[in-house]
Design a protein around this nucleic acid. Structure first.
Length: 239
DNA sequence: AACCAAGCCAACCGCCAGTGG
DNA sequence: CCCACTGGCGGTTGGCTTGGT
């Protein structure tokens, strides 16, 4: 028996997601949560397959995504887990908070499988330097449509000043405070900025964000919105 | 400057497992 | 049990960017 298609393929859009579609998806999920992926695009006013929405959310928009380049520790973990489990990317991703199976899979095929066996992955210090030269970094900046996500779920386009006011959700608000969550809510562009402006040492990074949060608490005590300093929001790459 | 090859990664596709009626 | 439906997974593809010539 033929399976029913997951969606009306004639009426669904394919290809890259636009900022507007992202906005719709985020706004809908923040307001209604995730109940039924198949119904979601209809309800959210998206001309997308439910699967496509799920994938976009899981791999790109989800609030707990880390993004940015992989640390030495993460690389080591992936290599060890892959040795133990093979291509079970979702299982490997479950051991790496903030990373998606797709991301890990791509990372494996792109970098890790090319490394000589039993050899350490790219040293952390070298990774930091590579981030500046890395094509993927350039790609991510350009592919992010210039959208920067703030912790409220509002977005702004760095140069044009265009902004959208998606409402803050209880889930998002409550999750604010974790570094990973911030990096993720901050979204694809912001996460790249971590590589440019944050201290590489995780403890220093934590301190950096805690100080930032403390400052923002003082400045925006009546609001959940976090104002990210301009020098962080807008690296030279956008200049 | 123009072309081409290679690399990267977001997104798609098909299949499978779980679940509820 | 059977069947339909949904979510999730892993493999693959296609578009974009960069680097080399």
């Amino acid at each position: 028996m033929a399976r029913a298609p997951c969606c009306e393929k004639a009426h669904v859009k394919k290809g890259s997601w636009t900022a507007q579609e992202d906005q719709k998806l985020i706004a809908y999920i923040m307001e209604h949560g995730i109940t039924n992926w198949r119904q979601l695009p209809k309800n959210a006013g998206l001309a997308r397959c439910g699967k496509s929405c799920r994938l976009r959310w899981v791999n790109y928009l989800r609030p707990d995504l880390k993004r940015g380049n992989f640390t030495k520790e993460e690389n080591d973990t992936i290599i060890k887990l892959h040795e133990a489990m093979g291509n079970r990317w979702s299982a490997i991703a479950a051991r790496l908070p903030g990373r998606t199976d797709n991301e890990i899979k791509n990372h494996w095929h792109t970098y890790l499988k090319k490394l000589p066996a039993k050899e350490n992955p790219v040293p952390a210090a070298q990774q930091t330097q590579e981030t500046f030269n890395n094509q993927s970094f350039q790609n991510n900046i350009s592919k992010s449509n210039g959208i920067v996500y703030s912790s409220t779920g509002a977005f702004s386009e760095s140069e044009s000043g265009r902004s959208y006011g998606a409402p803050a959700s209880p889930q998002l608000s409550s999750s604010i405070g974790s570094l990973d969550t911030f990096a993720c809510i901050a979204g694809p562009s912001m996460c790249e900025f971590d590589q440019l402006f944050l201290p590489h040492d995780p403890s220093m990074e934590k301190e950096f964000w805690e100080n930032l949060w403390a400052d923002q608490e003082q400045n925006t005590s009546s609001s959940s919105q976090v104002v990210v300093p301009r020098e962080v929001m807008r690296p030279q790459s956008f200049g």
